Every structure is written in structure tokens, then in C-alpha cells.
Simulated assay, not measured.
Amino acid sequence: MSSERSGLDVDESIRTLLLLMPRLIGRAKRAKIPDELAGMSLAPRHLSLFAYLLFDGPLGVNDLAERLEVTPATVSLMVGELSRKGVLERREDPDDRRRAIITLADAHREAIDSWLARSARAWRQALEPLTADQRRLFVETLTIYEEAI
């Protein structure tokens, strides 16, 4: 059986994804921000920052910059803004006093967790039926697309 008969050919796949991606992004942008975080001018870059801190725990500015693929100065600006709003906490690293450790403020951790959990549930629903190899291929494909665009 040819690959074209068992699934979409490349052009059909591209057409489908070009139509799907704007809807997907639109829905993600319309996701309701928890009331506790509303009015804080949060953007998608903040969600990525929150996800790293939620899943990986407290991190240094340089660690966050590397993960977010931005400069440490950009992370410092984001952290400063979100610290003033009480969403993040910055504390001194006990092992290196020159280094700041960033963490989610306890007062907002639950709201951030529930905000990210909606998306995590949707990804779980989409990915659980796949094999580990299929999931790896999907993630690699999205990564290649993101790098190419």
C-alpha cells in the first residue's frame, strides 16, 4: 500500500495544517486567564516561563534564558515585571549570592497550575493513544517546523 493511499500526501498534509494552525493558535489565545492573573498583561512567553518553573522547580535567570531561548536580560526584565506584580519571587542562591533563583509565588501557583493544566489535558488526550515512537515523531516534527518558520 502506498503512503498516499494509507494517509495524506505531503500537499494534502500541508493544506490541512495551514488551515488547522490558525484555529489552534486562536483557541490557545482565547484560553481564559484565571481571574487571579487577569489584568496582568500576560503573553504566551509568560506561559512558557510559568511552565518551566512549575514543572522544573525554581531556576536561575541563565537557566530560564537558555530554556526560553532568549537573553538573560530579557528574562531579567520579565522576572522583574512579574515579581513586582507578585507572580514570581526572586531570592538569592545560598550557594552563590550573585545568582538569583526564580520561583512561582505561592499565592499564584494554583492559578498558574490550573491554567496550564487545561492545555496539558488536551495534549494528553491527543498523545496518549500514540506509541512512544509516534509521540517522539510528533514532537520532533513540531520542533523542526518551529525551527524552520
Score class of each variant (00 low, 15 high):
residue 129 P to E: 06
residue 148 A to I: 07
residue 134 Q to M: 10
residue 127 L to W: 03
residue 105 A to H: 08
residue 121 R to D: 06
residue 96 D to K: 00
residue 129 P to F: 06
residue 91 R to C: 10
residue 120 A to Q: 03
residue 117 A to M: 09
residue 143 T to E: 01
residue 130 L to F: 00
residue 69 E to S: 09
residue 75 V to R: 10
residue 88 L to Q: 07
residue 80 G to T: 09
residue 145 Y to F: 15
residue 130 L to A: 10
residue 143 T to L: 01
residue 109 R to I: 06
residue 104 L to H: 02
residue 146 E to P: 05
residue 106 D to G: 13
residue 101 I to E: 14
residue 129 P to L: 05
residue 75 V to C: 03
residue 85 K to N: 14
residue 146 E to W: 11
residue 139 V to W: 11
residue 126 A to Y: 10
residue 99 R to W: 05
residue 137 L to S: 12
residue 92 E to H: 09
residue 90 R to I: 13
residue 112 I to E: 03
residue 143 T to W: 09
residue 67 R to E: 06
residue 72 P to A: 09
residue 84 R to Q: 09
residue 121 R to M: 01
residue 83 S to I: 12
residue 137 L to G: 11
residue 147 E to Y: 05
residue 103 T to V: 14
residue 136 R to N: 08
residue 85 K to D: 14
residue 92 E to W: 01
residue 124 R to C: 02
residue 145 Y to M: 10
residue 76 S to P: 14
residue 89 E to M: 15
residue 132 A to K: 15
residue 68 L to K: 02
residue 103 T to L: 13
residue 128 E to S: 14
residue 139 V to P: 01
residue 83 S to K: 14
residue 91 R to A: 13
residue 84 R to E: 10
residue 69 E to Y: 00
residue 77 L to G: 13
residue 122 A to N: 02
residue 146 E to F: 08
residue 69 E to G: 08
residue 86 G to N: 10
residue 66 E to M: 02
residue 146 E to N: 00
residue 78 M to T: 05
residue 145 Y to A: 13
residue 132 A to S: 15
residue 112 I to D: 00
residue 67 R to T: 03
residue 130 L to M: 11
residue 108 H to D: 00
residue 130 L to I: 06
residue 89 E to A: 09
residue 129 P to T: 07
residue 120 A to H: 04
residue 78 M to V: 07
residue 130 L to D: 09
residue 100 A to L: 15
residue 82 L to V: 15
residue 108 H to M: 04
residue 93 D to N: 10
residue 120 A to W: 05
residue 91 R to E: 13
residue 140 E to H: 00
residue 75 V to P: 08
residue 117 A to K: 13
residue 101 I to F: 12
residue 128 E to T: 13
residue 122 A to I: 07
residue 131 T to D: 11
residue 80 G to N: 14
residue 79 V to H: 02
residue 115 W to P: 04
residue 116 L to D: 03
residue 118 R to P: 06
